[in-house]
């Protein structure tokens, strides 16, 4: 299984995706700094109420960005192979087809989760450092608040990574890259509309059920792959 993942990475040449992720971090940070400085000084109310709110907004933006970004990777790894006719090649190897797809999906899942975590750390660090020097957003950020936020980010990351697989359900039957990416944008809007509640139960239950729905939906899309004709 690990071997299959390694082979996927070998042929994927994902270096371009890593650069893309770095650019995405930079763009999110730049956008938030813009909000931080200009929105805040202009109007009476500052853009961000507290430091915790900054972290929350960073998490939302990073999550949304990388669910969509992951759908691009998903298109490349799964739907692209159908389009390039290399899927027929893969399916004629002495390897279980579900394992092949599973290897691809675990890359997408890991990619989405890792980027959400790293993106949060990097951009949070930038924002909090900037705030430390300018002090435009006041108030304390306690250690327990921070720990709670870390837990929230990790769980949200799992939920978003699971959800990032769901576009396959729309994209795979149509063998369509645009359908995959558009459906990921829909999914992002669903995830973010669920961001309002902050009770502990919703923090744990919602992301995990989102992950379950995403993984199950992706499974549905390739459940019959062993019996499918690869033309």
């Amino acid at each position: 299984m690990l071997h299959l993942v390694k082979l996927e990475l070998k042929k994927g040449s994902l270096r371009g995706y890593v650069y893309g992720a770095l650019i995405a971090y930079a763009a999110i940070a730049a956008f938030l700094l813009l909000l931080y400085f200009f929105e805040g000084s202009d109007s009476s109310a500052p853009a961000f109420g507290s430091q915790l709110e900054i972290l929350g907004i960073v998490n939302t933006m990073v999550g949304a960005t990388f669910v969509v970004y992951s759908s691009a990777l998903l298109s490349r790894l799964v739907i692209g192979e159908f389009k390039d006719k290399t899927m027929a090649l893969l399916f004629a190897y002495p390897v279980n087809r579900k394992q092949l797809i599973f290897a691809k999906l675990s890359i997408v899942f890991a990619w989405c989760f890792a980027n959400i975590v790293i993106g949060n750390i990097v951009i949070d660090a930038i924002m909090l450092t900037v705030n430390h020097y300018t002090g435009m957003v006041g108030g304390e950020l306690s250690g327990s608040q921070l720990m709670q936020h870390v837990g929230f980010v990790l769980l949200q990351g799992v939920g978003a990574a699971g959800m990032s697989l769901l576009p396959l359900l729309v994209g795979l039957p149509r063998r369509s890259v645009p359908a995959t990416i558009v459906s990921s944008i829909f999914i992002v809007s669903i995830i973010n509309s669920n961001n309002g509640g902050f009770s502990l139960s919703s923090i744990i239950a919602i992301p995990l059920s989102l992950a379950a729905v995403g993984i199950f939906g992706a499974y549905l899309s390739f459940r019959n792959i062993d019996k499918a004709d690869v033309a």
């Binding site: 042929k11 390039d84 006719k85 290399t86 027929a88 090649l89 004629a92 190897y93 002495p94 390897v95 279980n96």
Partner: peptide
């Protein structure tokens, strides 16, 4: 899938990475 180890093939257009 075991038997596929013993088969080489070229079906329709040659597909590569």
């Amino acid at each position: 899938v075991e038997h596929l180890k013993r088969i080489g093939h070229l079906i329709e257009t040659p597909a590569f990475y």
